[in-house]
Design a protein around this nucleic acid. Structure first.
Length: 609
RNA sequence: GUCCCCGUAGCUCAGUUGGAUAGAGCACAAGUUUCCUAAACUUGGGGCCGUAGGUUCAAAUCCUAUCGGGGACACCA
């Protein structure tokens, strides 16, 4: 049960019965929205409807509120106190008994009170999009982590999700690499028009990365090279030179091996490992279709769809095929939509891609609907994300203008945690356990700092963000979860049983209320495609639990009833934290390890770490 | 030139369909451990919500203007 929706419905009902036809015209359901109170000292939930209603009813806000109060109070009975405050706020304060009952009813269900979507949708999520030959840099963190959290969230909510990595494996950069390699090693068998496969050729990811950089340099300084690269791209895409396909396949495999290594560390998964190249066969068919139906046109040697046809003002045309015959990523994206809708039955496609591409998606979506490749009911959504910036407000680069490798960031985070670990043998920890926990803590640090930021806005890169373990961080949340587990384990070892919950302290009450707000957090996160709301909920829960832990004894509580009650609360907290962890793909360590600094230890100041 | 995003505490950020006293983390200051792990907890200072108008009973939130930062605008993806 979602407390906020339950209250909203109730207010709506009551308002209809009190004011009937005066407010029944039009859809006013949003008007009655009840939300978490801004003033927890006064109320759990509040409703501002009386103030908005006052005008249409021609009454004073407080009068409207009083007219609603009595029937509302009656319908809640002893479950809640309904009161009026200020200019006309209707405040709800639940009774402790109600909270306990609601908690017992909700928290044992598989989804802890969350009700799955009524009708599941077949949804494809397109995220990741690593490019061949380019090592993942820190900027890639966002689409990967946000996309992964979204697929976890939407599956949890009941949709049928298929994730696709959609590799950038078919554009001009590949042509650039081929051209560069041809320049450097023309004797390789790939380059002959009638080539045979050359099996003895292989590149490491580092070599491939360097090759790409050299090709970029050639591209920047020579028009001749640009032509070579475009020609190579076209030859690859059309299949004119067979060896290019073999070479391309090798480059793709090398790049994939590299990204898979990182995905394993980050625990990011994909159902489909497709890329731009996978619609290659479809491209000529699509182009012909568009041309036959008069949707596309040719302009300055290229094939485009005009802005006017797409119904987009202030927009350039959408270019599908360049003057040299090569396809643009608009073409592959459009064909991919066709494929996903017709062959894979997608009812909804979500793209987790940098905000800077919003115009591109606006155009491609418009074109897809125009051409009928997407059904009118197909929902195409660009769930854009901000960039990771440097102090200058631009996408992060090191002083010498390079981007920071994602692998390096992960390694630094691991090293920082490792420095804090005890020696094998200390605290009963084996080397394997230390290694495992080190990885779990460091990955939580990296991932959580991403998830605590809003999807849509930029944030500043600071290596400390990824390697800070105090406060609003992954390790903080892990620590709280581990404490729950420790109490539960200890209780079970000592045969201490949990029992009926009673609220004996306001911290307990607040914690219960927090637990009951899980469905609200999930629902809003789902609607807004916003994983940070899940992270925020998990953090809030960890925070209230930490206060609980520090102020109220559980196993050491002398009163047996209270002890049993607190133990049950702890198990609910542990359960819900587990749900949040799995929604965000955060690892849950069995325990937290740290060097024993002794009693007088004082933590090393951050800036000396 | 057109369009999009952002401007909130010293720093990094929440605050979404307008409501009560604008929140959190870090940093800073002072405390808490014979007790379930101190990566924790408690307390404190700190804000003309970029600026100026407007709409409203009510504006960080909506509108207009303006300043500042970032981004996108046909042969890169």
């Amino acid at each position: 049960m979602n407390l906020a929706s339950m209250l909203t419905e109730k207010v709506h009902q009551v308002a209809l019965s009190v004011f009937d036809e005066a407010i029944s015209r039009g859809d006013q359901s949003a008007l009655f929205e009840v939300k978490q109170s801004d003033r927890p000292d006064l109320a759990d939930y509040q409703c501002n409807a009386a103030m908005s209603l006052a005008r249409t009813l021609g009454k004073k806000p407080r009068d409207v509120a009083s007219m609603l109060q009595e029937p509302l109070q009656k319908s809640f009975g002893k479950d809640a106190v309904v009161s009026i405050a200020g200019p006309g706020f209707i405040n709800f304060r639940f009774s402790d008994t109600f909270l306990v009952e609601a908690a017992e009813r909700n928290l044992q269900t598989p989804k802890q009170g969350y009700k799955e979507v009524v009708r599941p949708s077949r949804i494809m999520i397109d995220f990741g999009g690593p490019n061949i030959a380019k090592e993942l840099h820190v900027g890639h963190l966002r689409p990967h982590l946000i996309g992964d959290a979204l697929q976890r969230l939407m599956r949890f909510c009941g949709d049928v999700i298929t994730s696709d990595i959609h590799m950038g494996d078919w554009g001009t950069p590949i042509g650039m690499i081929i051209a560069q390699l041809k320049k450097e090693k023309p004797s390789l068998g790939f380059f002959a028009e009638d080539s045979t496969v050359v099996s003895a050729f292989s590149l490491s990811i580092e070599e491939l990365g360097n090759l790409y950089k050299r090709s970029k340099a050639s591209w920047d300084e020579s028009d001749e090279f640009k032509d070579e690269a475009r020609l190579a791209t076209e030859a690859l895409q059309s299949g004119r030179i067979k060896g290019y396909r073999d070479l391309w396949k090798h480059l793709r495999d090398v790049s994939l091996d590299d990204v898979k290594e990182i995905y394993k560390r980050l625990d990011v998964t994909f159902d489909l490992w497709l890329g731009e190249s996978d619609v290659n066969e479809l491209l000529p068919i699509m182009m012909k279709d568009l041309e036959d139906r008069g949707i596309s046109e040719s302009s300055k040697g290229a094939t485009i769809i005009s802005a006017a046809k797409m119904g987009l003002d202030n927009s350039p045309p959408l270019m599908l095929q360049k003057g040299d015959g090569g396809y643009t990523y608009a073409a592959t994206d459009l064909a991919t939509i066709w494929d996903r809708v017709t062959n894979r039955g997608a009812e909804q496609i979500i793209y987790v891609v940098d905000n800077r591409q919003s115009q591109h998606f606006q155009q491609v979506f418009a074109a897809a609907h125009l051409a009928g490749y997407a059904q009118p009911t197909t929902m195409l959504l660009h769930a854009g994300h901000g960039t990771i910036n440097g102090k200058d407000g631009k996408p992060f680069k090191t002083r010498d203008g390079k981007s920071v490798k994602l692998k390096d960031v992960l390694d630094i985070a691991v090293q920082k945690v490792r420095d804090e670990m005890p020696q094998p043998g200390e605290q009963g920890a084996t080397a394997e356990e230390i290694e495992k926990i080190t990885n779990q803590i460091s990955m939580a640090a990296v991932k959580f700092q991403e998830y605590i930021n809003s999807r849509n806005t930029d944030y500043a890169f600071d290596i400390d963000n990824f390697t800070t373990f105090d406060g609003k961080t992954g390790p903080y949340v892990q620590y709280a979860a581990v404490r729950c587990k420790a109490i539960i384990n200890k209780a079970s070892a000592a045969n201490i049983l949990d029992g009926e919950m009673v609220v004996s302290d306001k911290t307990e009450r607040e914690m219960l209320l927090n637990l009951l707000r899980f469905p609200e957090a999930i629902e809003t996160a789902y609607t807004r495609k916003e994983p940070s709301l899940v992270a925020a909920h998990g953090y809030g829960l960890a925070q209230i639990f930490s206060r609980f832990y520090n102020t109220l004894p559980v196993l050491n509580e002398p009163d047996q009833t209270i002890r049993a009650s607190r133990l049950k609360m702890v198990s609910y907290v542990q359960n819900q934290m587990g749900a949040c962890f799995s929604l965000l793909g955060l690892p849950e360590p069995s325990r937290m390890l740290r060097k024993d600094y002794g009693n007088q230890l004082k933590r090393v100041p951050r800036n000396e770490l």
